[in-house]
């Protein structure tokens, strides 16, 4: 692929010895809204975390915009699952969104006017200006999700990785996030979203990745959402795969022979 946002090559990530992602291999286009779908425990979050460098793959590699992650971190923004943090944290909406301006090298620097402007714009984009100084614990689930998205917007990145941004949000938030995504796409940004609601995938996404430990299918929604692919991913057809994965874990087997030196 000439214009490639994320290239994942033969990626295997294990958890406690068992492969959670297994030989996943794909290239994703630029400037599209891409959905990652698959049943619970199919490795969607693991895929995102491995792409973000939060988990070490046991084999394979990831390239973003044809480069190593460390070289282009500033161009990637990550939106973790809302439940992954403690919202009782003593901080306001503004404080959290300001974290989007933090960089590896500017942690010891004071925030400047540009940072403040960008943060205010990002808060406005997600419609939280009137809640700017409110403590994050006092927000609704949908508002908290929008805080996370505003933080990512404040990073001014080109690639956005979002882990289940539509979970536990109200209908109003869902549609405002959707229009925000369209706006981002029009600006040429690439957005990768983990999604679990099969009803809405064809409306929301331009491109899909269907996952169940292994890559089941990828492509446009029409290409991916075939009966055969969905049965393979959701129909329990991969029980054998799960059994083999647990055998590997039990025997502490290496996933790939080349991981071992003879």
């Amino acid at each position: 692929m000439e214009n490639c946002s994320i290239e994942v090559h033969n990626l295997t990530t294990t958890y406690g010895g068992a492969p959670v992602l297994w030989d996943v291999d794909f290239e994703l286009p630029v400037g599209q809204i891409i959905g990652v779908i698959g049943p619970n425990g199919s490795g969607k979050t693991t895929l995102l975390k491995t792409i973000m460098g939060l988990l070490e793959p046991s084999s394979g590699f990831v390239k973003i915009f044809n480069q190593d992650l460390d070289k282009i971190r500033e161009r990637v923004a990550y939106v973790p699952q809302r439940e992954s943090v403690d919202w009782d944290f003593p901080a306001s909406v503004y404080d959290i969104v300001m974290m989007g301006r933090y960089r590896k090298h500017n942690l010891f620097r004071r925030t400047n006017k540009t940072d403040i402007d960008i943060v205010n714009q990002s808060i406005e984009k997600v419609g939280l200006t009137e809640f700017k100084n409110r403590q994050i614990a006092q927000l609704s689930g949908g508002q908290q999700q929008r805080v996370f998205i505003a933080r990512a917007l404040a990073q001014r990145a080109e690639l956005y990785l979002m882990d289940e941004p539509f979970v536990g949000v109200d209908a109003a938030t869902e549609s405002s996030i959707l229009s925000l995504l369209q706006e981002m796409k029009n600006d040429g940004k690439t957005v990768l979203i983990i999604h679990h609601d099969l009803q809405t995938v064809s409306d929301y996404f331009d491109y899909l990745v269907l996952l169940n430990t292994r890559l089941i299918a990828k492509g446009t929604p029409q290409e991916v959402l075939t009966k055969e692919n969905l049965t393979n991913a959701y129909g329990g057809q991969l029980t054998l795969l799960a059994k083999v994965a647990s055998l590997i874990k039990e025997n502490e087997f290496p996933i790939r022979e080349k991981d071992m030196d003879f």
């Binding site: 033969n10 297994w22 030989d23 291999d25 292994r214 890559l215 089941i216 299918a217 990828k218 393979n232 057809q237 991969l238 795969l241 790939r256 022979e257």
Partner: peptide
């Protein structure tokens, strides 16, 4: 069962 093509299955099964 998966999207793997003929060029990749050997390595996957190794």
């Amino acid at each position: 069962r998966t999207s793997m093509d003929e060029n990749h299955v050997h390595a996957g099964a190794e």
